[in-house]
Design a binder for these strands. Structure first.
Lengths: 342, 342
DNA sequence: GCACCAAATATAAACGTTTAACTTTTGTTG
DNA sequence: CAACAAAAGTTAAACGTTTATATTTGGTGC
């Protein structure tokens, strides 16, 4: 038995395929009785719209491209794990819509640029979602130039306004530093993402401002930029703890680097709460299982990711990008007092 | 300027669109000189195949559906994080092919069943990849019934032969138990996945066999089944450590539950290596950053995931499922001696 | 009962590709 | 060089939609 098409329904009802097509998409051009008749027939024969026909005719793909920059297979490091939740959040947000998530895994920034160029020029998708934005991001420029709908996870700094979702890194760092300063910390380390990423810049800037506000000196030796793996967090602690005047607090940009920092503590024989403390930003609510549990700013990742999905839908419907910008303030979860006990 | 089609090339070369079409897909029906001519013209005008036309004409979708069962947004637990790497591995394997990964995030088993039914009956994809297989998996049955190409991550137990990729859980558990027994452990706990999952059964069975082989008694109190979150790992330790005769070793099914087990140790004041030890299976190579680092069976997730991608390609080309089965033995990484020091 | 208009429906073409069936060209053979 | 076969190329239809344009239907006012 063949899969039913609008032709089937046309024959079934004795109407033309044009009328059926219009009726099925609720056009006011066909009167309600006819529409009901058609819907009934569609139901009866088990009709489902064939997207290929629509796509060919309209040029729309009904795909949202999610560009996922994942570390190469050779690199066995715990990185980018939050992508799973990010993707599922987006997928859910699109659930009721005709759109699907098409995954484009790329190895690095250049590849993502090339992929996006492809998608835009050959219209392989109707919208794009990217993350890991840079201060000045050429991918954003490409899409803006062609007026292609997109949403970024993460802001940019020197690009024209566009749709984005991000955590409020500025506030987070300011409050983190202020809180630690209040608790007597004078040497606060910043374990930051790769320096070219927009949020690394935001965090760094906020860090300096906050230090000043608390009357603390800035020491470049207490700031590190790198891929947010456990290896990096560990390395930071090993290096900084060896300083003549080592930090008493580490602000880690994610849970992976925080875990690595713990590993560094273990290696150096440092005790959390006695020698130094670790604070972090947490997407996955995993810091509560660290030993000991640490203070974090927690932003459940499903929140921004669902927003990304909703934003791209609205953007594809033509809503202006300025209306689609969200900065979410993560919630402070104090699992430690974070005053040193010595 | 319009996007070039085969029609453009036909005009450009003075040939018919049929010849162009054949030439571009390397049909032997067109002679090499003509083919070269056409290729050159295609290159010149920047031609790219429009998939929508192909899809409509052939009925093929060039999509591989990846079904991802992710925990609901309300549940803030660290679960399913390895999916990110799984997906990117699959995506890479498909890179050179015309196929793309279409993501279907579902909330639970029933939804995945329904989604698969949809995909199969309305041919929304050409192939499906699922994970979290059950001992007897109705999803597998649906696809087999319709002779729909698919590969599972994880074996099944009571289903007809099909394409799969899995870690060799049987061997892993046997060797784990034997190794711990050799090191003097008599009370070995098994922190196992949900009981209806195929690999939970495999592991449990192997566990019992291995206990017997080592002359150890089986105690149901030392086995727990549940969602492999840190919460679960923690809960297991809290419960089992309170037993009259508590375990001296915990075999955790993944790194998340192992992390949770550590959290349980911390809570109970247990010291790793003195009171008990934790062993685990690790996909993400994160256990090396635990404090202390633990002994694991390590299977870098990109390995099975790329295999999944390659297998689904071959399966869609008609290769029989029996030829597409892989059981991979993870590598033992001994980071601890695992003998108790007391 | 007629002209007119709006509303409802029908016709036909188009999107880009593949492919069965047909025609033309080229090469081989006796 | 005729006869034919094989090779190379062409024609035309089809896949399932949407939509501009055309046609039919029914209702209104006079």
């Amino acid at each position: 038995m063949q899969r039913p098409t609008i032709k089937t329904i046309a024959q079934e009802t004795g109407l033309s395929i044009a009328t059926v097509s219009k009726a099925l998409k609720g056009s006011p051009q066909v009167r309600p009785e006819t529409r009901a008749l058609i819907s009934a027939a569609a139901e009866r024969v088990g009709y489902q719209l064939n997207m290929h026909g629509v796509q060919l005719r309209t040029g729309k793909t009904y795909q949202v491209a999610a560009i996922m920059t994942a570390p190469g297979p050779k690199q066995n490091e715990w990185e980018g794990v939050e992508y799973a939740q990010l993707l599922s959040g987006i997928s859910w947000a699109l659930d009721e819509s005709p759109y699907r998530v098409a995954l484009y895994a790329v190895r690095n920034f250049e590849e993502s640029l090339e992929t996006i160029r492809q998608i835009v020029t050959f219209r392989k998708a109707d919208g794009i979602i990217i993350s890991g934005t840079r201060g000045h991001d050429p991918r954003v420029e490409i899409m803006q130039e062609k007026d292609f709908p997109f949403v970024t996870y993460g802001t940019t700094i020197r690009n024209a306004p566009h749709a984005y979702v991000d955590a409020d890194n500025e506030q987070m760092i300011r409050r983190s530093v202020a809180r630690l300063a209040t608790r007597g910390h004078r040497r606060i380390a910043l374990v930051n993402p790769m320096g070219d990423l927009a949020y690394a810049m935001t965090r760094f800037h906020a860090y300096r401002v906050a230090l000043q506000a608390s009357g603390l000196d800035f020491d470049p030796a207490l700031v590190a930029h790198g891929a947010l793996t456990p290896a990096f967090g560990r390395e930071c602690v090993l290096t900084m703890a060896a300083l003549a005047d080592p930090p008493t607090a580490y602000i880690c940009a994610n849970e992976a680097s925080a875990l690595g920092a713990f590993s560094g503590f273990h290696e150096k024989g440092l005790v959390h709460g006695r020698d130094a403390v670790i604070n972090a930003t947490d997407d996955l609510n995993v810091s509560q299982y660290f030993s000991p549990p640490i203070t974090t700013y927690f932003l459940p990742i499903h929140q921004p990711s669902e927003l990304l999905g909703r934003f791209i839908l609205r953007r594809m419907e033509g809503e202006p990008p300025e209306a689609l910008q969200a900065l979410i303030m993560p919630e402070l979860i104090e699992r430690c007092d974070d005053r040193l006990t010595r």
